[in-house]
Design a protein around this nucleic acid. Structure first.
Length: 372
DNA sequence: CGCGTTTGACCCGCGC
DNA sequence: GCGCGGGTCAAACGCG
């Protein structure tokens, strides 16, 4: 399999990469999970990796449940019910929420196919995608036993130099600084997407705004209506400079990584925490945005501003059936405004910490990525 | 010996 | 109802 080679090549990380982040929110993961559940039921006996592993592996049974939650969802087999319930507790109510999952895709232009976000990933599959000569690789986060986060790595069919990494799920464990940064970025995208597609825009939106402020590397955001789910794409491939910023080494954001995600916490959402505790206060920079123009700045930390931006987007969405386009435009504007989040002339609001608190549904997609 | 990766098969959803 | 495509699982293999 030649194709796989490409994906595998990813193991080699490229320091310089441009990235594009796209988020898609879909509530249909059920399907995916459903089959999995079936699988588990039938094969649970054989799942040496997940269950049997007591001896050698770190993976635990819970992993299954977790994954279901993030990626999939509500459907649960009888066997997993209990476990699932537990997992739910960990993951949060996200499953039950209208939008249970968000997908974040990061597009990086680099020869090195692998992106290391500071997290550890285990490859669990590879498949040839139709229309793309390059194979798609599937990875699962192994930093934590029950971490449901998964990612897909694939080369752009059109441009092989572009590596597309899609993250799904929330990390249920603390992430490294670098990872945190990315997580916030993707979270922002996810939140935004979610906010746009769901009712509780206010909270999410706000978050989204903040998030974006933390996405310095994003040069462009796009919402793709063509996709099965709404997809927001932040195209970084256009700005070589961004690549540098993206790299952990060059991260402009002073993220502290702390306990971004309380593993044992009640809510276990990594994103909100990262975002609120670190990004907002730290470096965020949210400039003022004109609702009318959909433009957002990234340099100011002001949440209000962020909100404005969000509002702009929301307004656009609400008023325009083609919210996708509007959103894309808004995001692009925002991102395009600036990539540096450091030094924002704006005032930082500590309140940002609870941005998500207000929202009934936490963002589910917490992802991190980085190209090496 | 253990861990991670590889590869084929299986399952499910969606579209025709 | 059938077929296509996508995604995950699971056993085996290879490497450290």
């Amino acid at each position: 399999m030649d194709p796989k080679v490409d994906v595998n090549d990813a193991s080699v990380c490229d320091d310089k990469t441009e990235r594009e982040v796209s988020v898609s929110n879909n509530a249909e993961e059920d399907a995916i999970m459903s089959k999995k559940e079936d699988h588990n039921n039938q094969n649970h006996l054989m799942t040496k990796q997940l269950i049997d592993n007591g001896n050698g592996k770190q993976v635990c049974p819970e992993e299954r449940s977790s994954s279901q939650q993030s990626w999939g969802s509500s459907k649960s087999p009888k066997l997993e019910e209990e476990e699932e319930a537990k997992a739910k507790e960990q993951v949060g109510a996200a499953d039950q929420l209208p939008f249970r999952k968000a997908r974040v895709s990061v597009r990086a232009r680099s020869e090195a196919p692998l992106i290391s976000d500071g997290c550890q990933w285990r490859k669990y599959g590879q498949k040839m995608a139709k229309g793309n000569p390059r194979p798609r690789a599937y990875y699962r986060c192994t930093m934590a036993v029950g971490c449901p986060v998964r990612k897909q790595v694939q080369r752009c069919a059109d441009d092989k130099t572009i590596l597309i990494t899609t993250y799904e799920g929330n990390h249920n464990h603390p992430l490294p600084p670098a990872a945190t940064a990315m997580a916030s970025t993707t979270s922002a995208a996810a939140a935004m997407l979610l906010s746009g597609s769901t009712h509780s825009k206010e909270s999410l939106t706000t978050s989204a705004g903040s998030y974006f402020s933390s996405i310095p590397y994003a040069s462009m955001a796009t919402l793709s209506a063509s996709a099965p789910f709404p997809t927001i794409t932040l195209d970084l491939t256009q700005n070589p400079n961004n690549a540098m910023q993206l790299h952990p080494k060059y991260f402009p954001l002073p993220l502290h990584q702390s306990a971004a995600a309380p593993v044992g916490g009640p809510h276990l959402l990594g994103q909100p925490l990262f975002f609120s505790q670190k990004l907002l206060p730290t470096a965020s920079a949210m400039p003022l945005v004109h609702h009318h123009h959909h433009q957002l700045g990234q340099r100011n930390n002001n949440i209000s501003t962020a909100t404005s931006m969000v509002e702009t987007v929301s307004a656009a969405i609400a008023s325009d059936p083609n919210f996708t386009a509007a959103l894309a435009a808004a995001i692009s504007s925002i991102i395009g405004s600036g990539r540096n989040s450091n030094n924002g002339s704006g005032v930082v609001s500590h309140n940002g910490v609870s941005i998500f608190s207000g929202s009934p549904q936490p963002p589910q997609s917490c992802t991190t990525f980085s190209t090496n």
